[in-house]
Design a protein around this nucleic acid. Sequence first.
DNA 1: GATGAATGAGGGTTCATTCAT
DNA 2: TATGAATGAACCCTCATTCAT
Lengths: 215, 215, 215, 215
Amino acid sequence: MKPAAKRSLKTEKRLPNREEKSAARREAILAAALDEFSARGFAAARLDDVAKRAGVAKGTIYLHFRDKEALFQEIVRSLMGPFVGTVEHAFNADIPLRTLANQVVELFVREVFGTRRKDIIRLMMTEGPRFPKLAEFYYREVLSRVFNAARKRLQRALDTGEISHKALVRYPQLIAAPGITAIIWTGLFDRFEPLNVRELLQAQMNILFGEGRAS
Amino acid sequence: MKPAAKRSLKTEKRLPNREEKSAARREAILAAALDEFSARGFAAARLDDVAKRAGVAKGTIYLHFRDKEALFQEIVRSLMGPFVGTVEHAFNADIPLRTLANQVVELFVREVFGTRRKDIIRLMMTEGPRFPKLAEFYYREVLSRVFNAARKRLQRALDTGEISHKALVRYPQLIAAPGITAIIWTGLFDRFEPLNVRELLQAQMNILFGEGRAS
Amino acid sequence: MKPAAKRSLKTEKRLPNREEKSAARREAILAAALDEFSARGFAAARLDDVAKRAGVAKGTIYLHFRDKEALFQEIVRSLMGPFVGTVEHAFNADIPLRTLANQVVELFVREVFGTRRKDIIRLMMTEGPRFPKLAEFYYREVLSRVFNAARKRLQRALDTGEISHKALVRYPQLIAAPGITAIIWTGLFDRFEPLNVRELLQAQMNILFGEGRAS
Amino acid sequence: MKPAAKRSLKTEKRLPNREEKSAARREAILAAALDEFSARGFAAARLDDVAKRAGVAKGTIYLHFRDKEALFQEIVRSLMGPFVGTVEHAFNADIPLRTLANQVVELFVREVFGTRRKDIIRLMMTEGPRFPKLAEFYYREVLSRVFNAARKRLQRALDTGEISHKALVRYPQLIAAPGITAIIWTGLFDRFEPLNVRELLQAQMNILFGEGRAS
DNA sequence: GATGAATGAGGGTTCATTCAT
DNA sequence: TATGAATGAACCCTCATTCAT
């Protein structure tokens, strides 16, 4: 009640109240942890460093997350969950397949490769085998939903003759494969041989769905 | 099995000499370490377990490898190095592209997916970012050589009209992508949705190079 | 139950004033702390749990007690102090020794064993060595007073020939010993071999002072 | 084999070999832990201090004991277990009850009160409630065996008329009670009022079994 | 060479205590 | 006065590495 007194109804830049500060801390911890986990891997990352990077005390982490593992899982959940809807939406849109392909490429380049989601997917790939629960969550909440949407659209494309390869319906992994490969490549070999991610994805799309105007 | 590894073909009962025993131990350690690293990841794997699995004392590991990291690097080196020649050879063979594609699929299924090389590649992908030296070795000794051979063959195919997509020469990653994807998928999601690796690779080859008889 | 603890006997609906509320909180904290200390021991008990059990915030504890140790000491003080008078009174009553013995047994069974005082005495025994101040308080305010009263009465009994063992005057501990033993036994071994506390105490009294009618 | 070379068949003061050194370390850890646990209680004792006191590194403790709790349990086991036989033997000896009583007093004063067993019994009393497994072990391997031997002898004494109180057969605790009380008293109040333990025990024996010559 | 007991730095986690609200 | 989020020192335990045998 007291803190409300500090909320100004007029000035937009009011001081954050306690709840907001707590939420901000939580976000800071998630961001810092993603950085550390990405840089060192789950096992080698130190919560001490996470705390330092987030600007909080070590104990504060445990106010928001049960343990290191829960923190890791929450990183994946909080950043990938909201993203799924966007992707499903894109697949459901009533647009030509070729246009859709371009949009998917753009979506990947901008919203995955251009953000920390890239790091999360990398983490998912690298640490997933040791976190079956997380892998299950990821499959259930992310992959299966995205693949379902993709399969539905691809089946329609097959029915209407937009595509001719039946295998694509069965293996939407073929659409994702260059993206996965790009994430891995850039993490390992970019300094030796830089990879133009957009071009790589575009090339696969061209091969799968025929040449289209560049997005 | 340990000490008998290098039995002479002539004298069946010759005891292995000291050098042979040492080499056998080294191999046992490498194999055990691969198992442990694969199962737990580099940071979480314990040299105690490696020693136990290899049937040697913990100290013995340090007689053969400077430290944990050197052991890891040696695993990759010793198992991938010899394999590169085989792949290069396949790409250089004077056979139709479609036949080559089938052979590459088979080679991957049999010699990578069916062996511990799958685990090494997975390890390379998951731990590589923390081992720049290793990534460099892998790029120099494995990837660039395989990609060079592939590019040469693809350029020839482009010249002779066997293929029409120029992008393939630029991005041989598109050929590797389904293999990488398969390795990751099976490590994470096979229990939810099993993946037929050969079919997946075959499908990509079909799309890239046109339908061919099953290998 | 919390705020209502001190309801006036006349005005049934009078709201407790601030002072009463504070005192009630203090009592709630003491009771909760006794529970937690009894269950886990001083070192392992968590003030978080004490606060939760008392229905107050963690910080509130520090408004009433300087620190964890002070809280512990105050538990002993507040529950044992008032009890001493009762015991002294019993020893001073002008009744036959055998009757007194029965009363002491009943007092112990009802007012110690049947209440949290049992837990306090146990705590005193288990944690006392680490809290010299508390042990001193306990000796000064509880034990020496009770023992003095007991010795006085026993000396009288010796003088009048009610008892013949001189040692009892010197070692009133012999009267307390079965009670102490019972508290420890029930805390450790009751599930293996339940102990009838009243019978045990009665038996010692019979041996010390001769058979008497059951209380 | 090499170390055996250092064993002299003639000189008795040969250097301890590896196995002996390990056993010595184990004993040192047990002794140090008993000191620390006695001084601070289980929860508050630091393994760091135990290691320092034992003259070993922290990790060494874990070569001999699974964890802090196992160390604690082993202290009790290793010091009390061997002692039980001695006590049983004393109870089974074919000697007059009064003589036996004197022997038991001496045994307690010398072998319990004069040794670290006193500390173990104290620890058992103070920490037992938090270690049900340990309490069970103690009941099964120590108490029930000692009590059985005591009950058998007391029943015989009852049959032959050596004693008249039937309650003693039922409650051998009455024999142990002064010992327990003495351990607690000396731990808490000896600086205010020192207790002559032998006299206290002797007095109870006198009351229970009649006056006897001092042992 | 081979062993495995010993080391001790390091990190995850807990929890008494503080303090801004 | 009451709150409970935040703090950070403390502590158990692990495990890569060493070294006496």
